[in-house]
Design a binder for these strands. Structure first.
Lengths: 140, 140
DNA sequence: TTAATTGTTATAGTAAGTGTAACATTTTTT
DNA sequence: AAAAAATGTTACACTTACTATAACAATTAA
């Protein structure tokens, strides 16, 4: 029950953009500063464009920039932009087998309730709060 | 961020054992009644043996039986028995790259807090309550 | 028109999960 | 002691998902 590294890569990229908000940065610049492959970054950022978290400009002098203030971007919307799956998900679709019991319904109820908890937690965490935490930690 | 079918298979097997608690059943009998492969069942049930949820007896007249009442078995202990990973887990170990910020620590704090929530939810769900739910549903 | 940039597709490699079979081990029964 | 029946464990093939990267198409500004 593991998740991708897409979330942490996205957060790193967005935090980098947030440091010079609202200035635009190219995928190459972001790559050099985060260590994340530029092609991978473009794929992630294009997803974040579709949900209006960042905006992209093609061509010379193009790049990516945040469309919202760091305090108005939360983890949940980032997660939803880059992942099609729910954050907590079990493959139970095959358990509606030969028996008469509705295991599938039972587990789905449980999992969607867990999902709500996770989304609530993620919604409360903004990019700004992540940056504050990281800066505070780096002062030691 | 998906989980295995191991949990639902285990629950099905345990529910079947619970229906005739505390009588022992062979992996073949469980397989015939649940549609789950007998070899897979033995692997799962041997893990559940190690955490004292079921007990196994080899040899003729052997089989598996519940070691505890269905009301005293909860989802959380089943999950922990069969999965080595935490229920909610992100691969963020590679994000401690070239920068000075402690992203890893930040995400770990978040994820362990989510983990606590999930474990609390699972702990509250007993095999007995699952069976009650399923029986109630099958009356329609 | 050229250069620089994003957007998209393709591909190869790795890791994880799944289902099943085969065989070793243990135990009871005769 | 031998045979039968069961669990315990290992191995393997198959599929699926994830990851990283490259290559090229599309777009834009100078």
């Amino acid at each position: 029950m593991s998740a991708s590294t897409k979330l942490s890569s996205s957060v790193k990229a967005i935090c980098f953009l947030a440091e010079s908000y609202p200035t635009a940065k190219t995928s190459k610049e972001i790559a050099e500063n985060t260590g994340i492959n530029a092609s991978k970054l473009r794929k992630l950022l294009s997803l974040l464009c579709k949900s209006k978290i960042v905006v992209s400009n093609q061509g010379t002098k193009g790049g990516f920039q945040l469309l919202k203030s760091p305090k108005d971007i939360n983890l949940q919307e980032i997660y939803c932009s880059i992942e099609d799956r729910k954050a907590f998900h079990l493959d139970v679709s095959d358990i509606i087998g030969k028996d008469e019991y509705d295991y599938l319904g039972y587990f789905n109820n449980l999992f969607s309730s867990i999902q709500v908890d996770i989304e609530n937690k993620m919604t409360k965490i903004s990019i700004q709060s992540i940056m504050n935490y990281l800066k505070m930690k780096s002062n030691f």
